[in-house]
Nucleic acid binder design. Structure first.
Lengths: 330, 330
DNA sequence: TCGCTTAATGTTAGCGCTAACATGTTAGCG
DNA sequence: CGCTAACATGTTAGCGCTAACATTAAGCGA
């Protein structure tokens, strides 16, 4: 049996609430008492029972994080940012994955609320009615991450429409005119679809109404990219640029180009999205939009913790922006 | 205030323990009762309080997973495997990261034990004395993952020495004789150091006593790989193969080779480790060892869950092996 | 030294659930 | 129809901690 607060208290010759205070508000115990308590903790080998504490205080230092996928580097970086901040402040990250299924999201949230979570991080602004209803009645802070807009509570992300527009404006400025957009399962990856919307806006603003889209079934992203290049080259010989939904696909295309004898950017320009390291290592270097992934995680965690601690959080919606990184591929 | 079991019980006209049984051993409540309880749950909008349940039963459906890093794809794949299995069985994954610091590991484990965890997944077989002592006195199942050997309890992984040996044997079989090993911070990444040990064994078996090592400080893995190639090419012109500690470095080198005018494998052969997708997209394709990352996670979870449920787990130590994937780079 | 304020510690009750035991209820049999 | 076994449900107590209030000790100026 693990020793309890009472065991420590007996050993230290104080009451259990004093030991509890030693942990929860150390400033409220006298130096002499602190020393006694510390010695007792050491002696009996006490480990805090977080479960009991959470039950009594009706709040646990647990923060569920709900992401759609773990196969995607994007979310890994976000989780890293979140984890770093949470760990530094004594909070635990509880990981949930929806596989892009909104019903699954509802189910996960239900379960997580049963953990008396101190807050919640959830991906995206699109939710079930059920989820929305649960969360609206929940009075702990929530951060919706990745994109921007009218949300449930706090919101940290970037503007995907603007990112898509920025890239296409860049391509137009370089003189490309027949620009295809290539993605993988855009109905699922609706943030990529938002970038495609921005892409269309930029084309329309330049008087180009036709915005051809190649939406492939996702298998392995780099493979899809290679396939997209091949298919577009074969079917649309006058296409002069491909705006990919992400760097994996774009790099897959660049690497395939060498094998296919396609010159980049002379025969066709390639653009990506995310700013992954690999983009800097392919030849030519990939033109991409650097998304602030880890930063989103970090900022989301900070805002959430601030709200939990009753500190000011500033703007409810926080735009972390993006950077266009121009390589040789466009 | 959230509704409790009592609210459901009152609504259904049964006692609270019956509702508890509805959740924990559904087979022990009558069909008619089940229907009443379900209706009541729906009506009051009940959400289980896992905290209270865990306190009362002295065990929570939480499994802490301790990894050294989240920057490394390897662990992401492992986490994915674990997460999938846990989620399917109603267990929650609590994520901890040590940054390769054994003292941090001890601290994390201490905290996690306070969660009355049902089990524990921890990376590697090397631990603090403090960690070892805590875990030896803990009577819940533990899985140590990634490598093989004499462990605390269960163990799922692969033989890194054998993997290093296998790759170098392949290189020797191809006729390469002056083979350098290149890694990044091998003291920290001691599993890579084990592969280097296997590499040395293979060389020694072939009568080659000299096993040159380039151990770079880690920055970005692909960059380190490129740098390693450049440095070895400049300093050791007779080196005919580089055995890299991982695929990121190896691919960094392959991609840099094109820029540096180094022909692979004619001027120099390149080998990696992990079997990441990118290795299949570079030209020439990377020769590498495919590590069973997601499988390790999956199997670790299965064994742990089996042990938790009192089912047979089979062998304590489970070797998931590896595959040599030969590409054009060697 | 006294009386007062503030700091430090203690007492009591209860968070929401489940283990363990107790009781009631049903089905099956002679 | 009564008896028993097996099943279904209920009662009680308590998991280990903390909130809220109660009490005691310490500090300090006059």
């Amino acid at each position: 049996m693990q020793p309890t607060l009472n065991d420590v208290a007996r050993e230290a010759g104080v009451s259990s609430i004093t030991v509890s205070r030693y942990f929860n508000s150390p400033d409220s115990v006298r130096e002499a008492t602190r020393v006694k308590v510390e010695a007792a903790i050491e002696k009996v080998g006490y480990v805090r029972n977080m479960i009991a504490g959470s039950l009594a205080s009706a709040s646990s230092r647990v923060i569920p994080v709900i992401v759609p996928s773990l196969s995607n580097v994007v979310f890994i970086d976000v989780i890293k940012g979140l984890q770093d901040e949470f760990e530094a402040h004594g909070y635990q990250l509880l990981l949930g994955k929806t596989d892009y299924d909104l019903a699954r999201e509802t189910q996960l949230i239900r379960t997580f609320l049963g953990w008396s979570a101190a807050g919640l991080v959830v991906t995206g602004l699109r939710h079930d009615d059920a989820t929305r209803q649960i969360l609206e009645n929940w009075n702990q802070p929530i951060v919706e991450i990745m994109e921007l807009g009218e949300g449930l509570d706090l919101n940290v992300g970037m503007d995907h429409v603007a990112a898509g527009r920025a890239m296409t404006e860049h391509l137009l400025a370089r003189g490309y005119r027949t620009i295809h957009f290539a993605g993988a399962e855009l109905d699922r990856d609706y943030r990529a679809a938002m970038r495609y919307a921005g892409h269309r806006e930029a084309l329309a603003a330049a008087g180009i109404e036709d915005a051809p889209l190649l939406d492939l079934p996702v298998r392995q992203q780099m493979t899809s990219g290679a396939q997209a290049l091949e298919r577009i080259k074969a079917t649309f010989p006058d296409c002069d640029a491909i705006h990919f939904a992400n760097d994996d696909m774009a790099c897959g295309a660049i690497l395939a180009a060498a094998r296919l004898g396609v010159r980049i950017p002379d025969d066709i320009a390639i653009a990506g999205f995310n700013g992954l390291p690999i983009g800097e290592h392919v030849t030519p270097r990939l033109t991409t939009i650097v998304s602030p992934r880890e930063q989103i995680g970090r900022m989301a965690a900070r805002k959430l913790l601030a709200r939990i601690n009753g500190e000011p959080v500033g703007e409810l919606s926080h735009d972390l922006g993006f950077t266009l990184r121009v390589g040789g591929s466009t």
